[in-house]
Write a protein that binds this DNA or RNA. Structure first.
Lengths: 159, 159
DNA sequence: GGTACACCTTGTAGTCACTACAAGGTCAAG
DNA sequence: CTTGACCTTGTAGTGACTACAAGGTGTACC
């Protein structure tokens, strides 16, 4: 058998990772955070052992994260689907709709930002001395309004 | 005299904060990071004492941050305008253009995200049982493609 | 002059969703 | 039995702050 058979039929964390597009570190992090359950450990050794349910749960988690849900929101979503399957999905709907509203707001801010930046770079033709640079000028002297709306759009440049 | 006169003509950190839309903690953080200079301390006491140049610098910083520049980029921008005012603004222009490219990419990703989310919430009419919820279903079974492009858009929900 | 109180000081820890690394253990193959 | 890929736990770092603790300072009012 190749790789996948190593631990009596289960997947190792690395195999799960490559099937779901996560890193093993991220999966262990999700486990610490209680978003995915602690798996059984393989027979003789101490390796984590995963099955198809874990692949599905992690794929769900990744997809929800790609849609911009926070880990806390994903946890909530997963609790809904873990719980009584007869319950109404109204809360799920509310969560998704609230999230859509946020995304729409952020989209508007980001597009305003784009226009401001484009306007600013258009003014600079590159050979000018710094003292006369329009970018620096636009940033220095622009309308100083500080809206709450402008608050949330910046944070998008990690990693 | 009211508040602003407390320290022989200068502003306290709190006054600077309210004039620029920052918190005093954030200003002290910028100082630690070397993005704004260490100010003089007021006469008898140890309070930080700010002037108009500080208000301007901080306003510049806030505006650049609102346009999505990282603190490191703002530092670079400020170094350009601190330095020889006869230098060409080509580097400033390059920085702003690179940033505009990033913003455009992010805008495209976010708008794709919006459409996906809207499609997903449209399918849920709210009264359905969780077992049949389309949102959960869409998240569980959707196309499992994992693009690098989808990677960067999530990070936008701190604070 | 005393005291109340708002604001300041430094320092440390927490946030979010990870990533990176160190030091060592385990597994299968050759 | 060795090689080497992968696993284990634990800790620290990222960015741009925020939150809090414990104490100091400045001013206004009585």
């Amino acid at each position: 058998m190749t790789r996948a058979g190593r631990t009596t039929g289960g997947l190792t964390i690395g195999e799960l990772a490559s099937r779901t597009g996560c890193t093993p570190e991220a999966i262990r992090y999700y486990e610490r955070e209680g978003v995915v359950p602690r798996p059984a450990r393989a027979g003789s050794g101490r390796y984590r052992q995963y099955g198809d349910a874990d692949v599905e749960r992690l794929a769900f988690l990744r997809r929800a994260r790609e849609l911009g849900f926070s880990l806390a929101e994903v946890r909530a979503l997963l609790q809904f689907s873990d719980g009584d399957p007869g319950r109404s999905c109204g809360e799920v709907d509310a969560l998704a709709r609230a999230h859509l509203t946020q995304v729409d707001a952020k989209l508007a801010q980001l597009s305003a930002l784009r226009d401001a930046l484009a306007g600013v770079t258009d003014q600079c033709r590159g050979g000018v001395a710094v003292a006369d640079c329009r970018i620096l000028g636009a940033l220095s002297g622009g309308a100083a309004r500080r809206t709450d709306a402008a608050d949330d759009v910046n944070q998008s440049r990690q990693r």
